[in-house]
Design a protein around this nucleic acid. Structure first.
Length: 429
RNA sequence: UCCUCGGUAGCUCAAUGGUAGAGCAUCCGGCUGUUAACCGGAGGGUUGCAGGUUCGAAUCCUGCCCGAGGAGCCA
């Protein structure tokens, strides 16, 4: 019977077949140990010369790393085997004998591994990250679906910019120009007015010349948008979501977190409430360590580090000055120079994981803001329409998926959190 | 666009102006419980490229190419 390695314990003392790839092998005189991986786990099989067919023993000698194989044998509880179980082989077939495999079980540099990403994904650590990624995606969807949100995805091909105009990938769209989406947010506002509570979840694209551990040119963003919600409600939603995701990964992906050598205590402390500080309070924290930081500026990576190190949980920073946030942010009625915006900085120096806020819902104010920034009224005509036909207080946020995965996995660089990272100067493989 | 660091065997690195080397991988041999197994042997090099200084350059100088980290911008 063909089984997956993750279920091996259920088949103790039974004959099973595993299908997979040779992970590694060791030998000692007349005994061979081969490690097979099938994507769900790794299992050791033992082949002793005097206790099995000669043909199997010869195959075990010949087999190379990453050859595809089919192995049949008896499952035995064995403390000496990694994982606690091993298979006593009585049949072994090579599906394809692999050529010399470039990625050995020793250390390699990212320089070497990145062009080999299609093979690198087979390694223990990388496949663990992909499994955590999958669970985070599923947790995000479940969190919103269970509360009656509707997934209403935004288009990827768009006629205009959401954020700036300098960071767009341009594509030919028949006889006109189109751009790859930087955010689904403006469309979310339309679907939220149709459906009440919505989210979109898909790839977004930014042609920034950024070359840091936090940047990909193609990254996934989860963006909920809610009608009749205000700033505090947006923070509540984000906080509940993050707590839910972290708890679920701890419950369901502990094996993977162990493979990644993650410090569990750092994740176990992610509980409500998260600190909520104003931009002004955040500036004071930064200025304690960097006296040169001018109030009114946006925080750069070193400043985020200072803020992050002051807390052992993610922290919300709200009420940023209007001029460092996008045109659609609602102004604080109590102080017109401030916006009802909020960012969430991850703990352990994970950077900005969430950006969002309450949107400008007044037609005249929004039009003024568009004009002030030199944007075209015509381009945003449909967006302005939303303020003509039953406008209401509303808002939402965007969660950077790859940064969130990197934070939860304790991985430094975002490029390891997506199967095939797209970065400045790298689109292969 | 700017700043910093780097490029030596398939991989990871050493050799600080004087014979280019080690571990892993590969191939051959040994070992009946291995845990990135171990032990012995072999093959493997235009030191990123082009100039220059020098009796002599992987090493010093100039230019270029490629890569990594970071800044700005941003999730």
């Amino acid at each position: 019977m063909h089984i997956y390695i993750e279920n091996i314990a259920k088949h103790e003392a039974k004959e099973v077949t595993v299908k997979g790839w040779l992970y590694n092998k060791r030998s000692s005189g007349k005994i061979r140990f081969i490690l097979i991986r099938d994507g769900t786990g790794i299992v050791q099989s033992v082949i002793a010369k005097d206790e099995t067919k000669n043909s199997i023993f010869e195959i075990a000698d010949k087999i190379t790393q990453e050859s595809s194989v089919m192995l049949t044998g008896l499952v035995k509880k064995e403390d000496r085997a990694p994982g606690g179980y091993e298979i006593v082989a009585n049949d072994l077939q090579i599906i394809q004998l692999a050529q010399e495999y470039p990625i050995t079980p020793k250390d390699h540099s990212v320089e070497f591994l990145l062009p080999l990403r299609h093979l690198w994904l087979r390694s223990k650590k990388q496949s663990a990250i992909m499994r955590v990624r999958h669970e985070i995606i599923k947790a995000c969807r479940d969190f919103f679906d269970d509360q009656g949100f509707v997934c209403a995805d935004a288009p990827i091909l768009t006629p205009a910019a959401v954020e700036g105009t300098t960071t767009l990938f341009e594509v030919e769209y028949y006889d006109q120009k189109a751009y790859l989406s930087q955010s689904g947010q403006l469309y979310n506002e339309a679907t939220a007015a149709a459906l009440g509570k919505v989210y979109c979840f898909g790839p977004t694209f930014r042609a920034e010349k950024s070359k840091t551990r936090r940047h990909l040119t193609e990254f996934w963003m989860l963006e909920p948008e809610v009608a009749f919600i205000e700033l505090d409600g947006i923070m509540d939603l984000a906080e509940n979501m993050v707590v839910y995701i972290v708890k679920r990964i701890l419950e369901r992906k502990s094996t993977e977190l162990k493979t990644l050598e993650r410090d569990f205590s750092k994740l176990e402390s992610i509980k409500k409430p998260f600190p909520r500080i104003t931009y002004e309070e955040a500036v004071k924290i930064v200025q304690k360590k960097d006296k040169t930081f001018p109030e009114g500026n946006d925080f750069g990576a070193p400043h985020e580090t200072i803020i992050s190190e002051s807390f052992d949980k993610p922290v919300f920073i709200h009420h940023y000055p209007v001029n460092i946030k996008a045109f659609y942010m609602k102004r604080d009625p109590a102080d017109e120079s401030l916006s009802l915006s909020v960012d969430m900085i991850g703990s352990e120096n994970a950077g900005e994981l969430i950006g969002g806020g309450q949107r400008e819902d007044n037609y005249e104010t929004l039009l003024k803001s568009i004009k002030e920034r030199g944007l075209s009224e015509d381009t945003y005509a449909w967006y302005l329409d939303l303020r003509k036909y039953g406008t209401c207080p509303h808002g939402g946020f965007g969660l950077g998926l790859e940064r969130t995965i990197a934070w939860i996995c304790g991985i430094k660089h975002c490029r390891e959190t997506i199967p095939f990272p797209r970065m400045l100067d790298r689109v292969y493989p």
